[in-house]
Amino acid sequence: MTCWRSWHRPLVLFAAAMTVMAFVAGVGILVDDRVLAGSAIWAKPFKFAVSFVAYALSLAWMLTLLTRGRRIGWWAGTVVAVASLAEMALITWQVVRGKRSHFNNATPFDTSLYNAMAGSIVILWTGTLVIAILLMRARIADRASAWVIRAGVVIALAGAGLGFLMTQPTAEQRAAGNLDTADVVGAHAVGVPDGGPSMPLTGWSTTGGDLRIPHFVGMHALQLLPLLLLVLVALATRLPRLGDPRVRLRLVLVASGAYAAVVALLTWQALRGQPLIHPDGATLTTAALILAATTAGAYAALRPAPVRPENDPHIPADKELMA
């Protein structure tokens, strides 16, 4: 593990700023009784700030692993930090004004702010893509670490890209036929209006699909997959089987595939207008298949290699050594 002092400075400073912002927004939730789209008006900046802390610190650490293109990586990380800061500044400004930040076309000014936020997200995503490409080319000695970092950033990019689906007009908005003059175009929810009954804390819809769910889960592969590897390494002192680098590699391969499958399942569920907490038979069956495949993969990864008898004339000498 590299010293935190060598982490990407602008991203670390941005994470520190978002820690302060999370505190400010938390206080806002407690003292400001305004409600917007069915949630406390300060809930959105609070959730964005917490998410950005984890996202920025993960990238700040990963940039220390680059073995080539470090200067490009530094600039890409800086672009991500600046774009993210701009996004948060615009979200907070709209909260102060008591207005929606996303999907808001009520006035030309609101539209310009929303377009600016859309541009900042595109820049953020592009900067992360550059970092992902550099990480793909980095020479990381431990294969499990290399795979889990690369898989994490690729799945995070896919999760971030799912935000584009929220910007598209809903079926109801299209049916109304006034997209050029509508105050709101786009939505988090699918099949129901934004602002309806929702889960505590997350605000995810309990009556329809919600695209924020796969968006959130996908983006945080950046933290959860590397965290899994850290857990495997920590458990290796108690479970000798995990001390084998090949076993850890196989396990993170299985975990990465399972994580990607879960993000795909959550996206499919949301697009069908189905609440997370009320899955239908098709969703449950698919989830069971993913669980079964993951369990089988983990079992195969942990199963000891077969012991080959010594001096077996049917096994070439080089294969005996490999065994």
Rank of each mutant, 00 (worst) to 15 (best):
V247R: 05
G243K: 02
L232G: 01
F216P: 09
L230C: 13
L229D: 01
P226S: 06
A258R: 03
A234V: 05
V233I: 15
V217E: 02
L227Y: 11
R248E: 00
A261S: 12
L222I: 02
V254H: 10
G218Y: 06
R246D: 15
R238V: 01
L232I: 06
L232S: 00
V262T: 11
V262E: 12
A221V: 10
V247W: 07
A221S: 09
M219S: 04
P245G: 13
R246P: 12
R248L: 08
V231L: 10
M219K: 06
A261L: 09
L251A: 11
V263S: 03
G257I: 10
A255S: 13
H220I: 03
L235P: 10
A234S: 11
H215S: 08
V247F: 05
L229C: 07
A261K: 10
P240M: 01
V217Y: 07
R241F: 08
L225P: 00
V254Q: 07
V233N: 04
R248H: 03
V217Q: 10
H215Q: 12
V262H: 11
R246L: 15
A221E: 02
L249E: 15
A221T: 07
L228C: 02
L251N: 07
G243F: 05
L224K: 06
G218L: 08
L251I: 13
A255I: 07
V263L: 12
V263I: 15
L251T: 12
P245L: 12
A258S: 11
A234D: 02
P214Y: 06
R238G: 01
P240F: 04
V252F: 00
Y259G: 08
H215K: 00
G257P: 06
V233L: 14
Y259C: 09
V254L: 07
L249Y: 15
L230I: 03
L235C: 15
P226L: 10
A258P: 05
V231Y: 03
L235F: 15
L222N: 03
A234K: 05
L253F: 13
L227W: 12
P240D: 07
V217S: 11
L225K: 00
H220W: 11
L230E: 08
L228T: 08
P245W: 08
T237N: 01
V233Q: 09
A255E: 11
A261E: 10
V252G: 05
A258T: 13
L242V: 04
P245F: 09
L225N: 02
A264H: 14
L251K: 04
V254E: 01
V233W: 11
A234F: 01
P245Q: 13
F216Y: 14
L229Q: 05
D244Q: 01
V233F: 09
T237M: 04
F216T: 05
V263Q: 08
L228P: 09
L232R: 00
L235M: 15
G243A: 12
Y259F: 15
P226D: 05
R250D: 09
A236C: 01
R250F: 10
A258H: 08
L225Q: 07
F216V: 11
H215M: 13
L224S: 06
M219F: 13
H215W: 07
P240Q: 03
V217R: 12
P240E: 04
F216E: 13
L227N: 08
R250W: 09
M219P: 01
G257M: 00
L224F: 14
L225T: 05
P214E: 02
L253D: 07
